[in-house]
């Protein structure tokens, strides 16, 4: 018999990844926190009906995504219909990966991605989701996930490379900071 997961264990296992998914969707820390809390609230009030603990993770991510779409419905139309136009703009050939980038650069690049790419890409990089599971969470066909992942990864690389070039011209190198700190030592 499959056992429903203990609530606290479920929170410990998934709240950080859910928060990161929420953050990638909303690009706002407080909204991401609210979505994560709302998702677990819904689990606490409805999720017990799901007796198979193995499906809990998928249920949580699907619920967070639905909540996000619901919250955006009144503000803007989620641009599913624009995907074909975006696809035309993305280079057919994947650009080479950037040599080096930090978490801040990555988050900035992710934030600049179109939401249609950002959602599947975040789930892809949250480690355990296969493209078929991503299709379940986002409720789109697996073939669509495959093409969005491919295009999203190409676009992410392009944005990271673009940032790398911009930063090279405007960044103040850290050694100057260290030097300034030593002045009075």
């Amino acid at each position: 018999m499959k056992v429903a997961p203990d609530f606290e264990q479920l929170v410990d296992a998934h709240y950080a990844a859910l928060y990161r998914f929420g953050l990638s969707l909303t690009r706002n820390e407080s909204e991401a926190s609210d979505l994560t809390q709302q998702t677990f609230y819904l689990w606490a009030t409805k999720g017990h009906q799901l007796r198979d603990g193995a499906q809990a993770k998928s249920w949580l991510f699907t619920t967070l995504y639905r909540e996000f779409l619901g919250s955006r419905k009144k503000q803007e139309r989620f641009p599913h219909a624009e995907l074909d136009d975006i696809a035309e703009e993305v280079c057919a050939e994947t650009p080479p990966p950037p040599e080096d980038f930090d978490t801040t650069a990555l988050m900035e690049a992710m934030a600049r991605l179109s939401p249609v790419f950002r959602a599947p890409l975040t789930l892809f990089y949250l480690q355990d989701f296969s493209y078929r599971q991503i299709a379940d969470v986002l409720e789109i066909p697996p073939g669509t996930v495959m093409s969005r992942l491919a295009r999203g990864k190409a676009e992410l690389r392009r944005l990271l490379l673009e940032q790398e070039k911009q930063n090279a011209s405007r960044l103040v190198p850290l050694p100057s900071l260290a030097a300034a700190g030593k002045k009075h030592e």
Partner: peptide, 16 residues
């Protein structure tokens, strides 16, 4: 790098 993005320190407590 994505796994290094920390959730707010009190989020777990708020959920529980």
């Amino acid at each position: 790098k994505l796994s290094h993005v920390p959730p707010p320190a009190d989020l777990r407590e708020r959920i529980l």
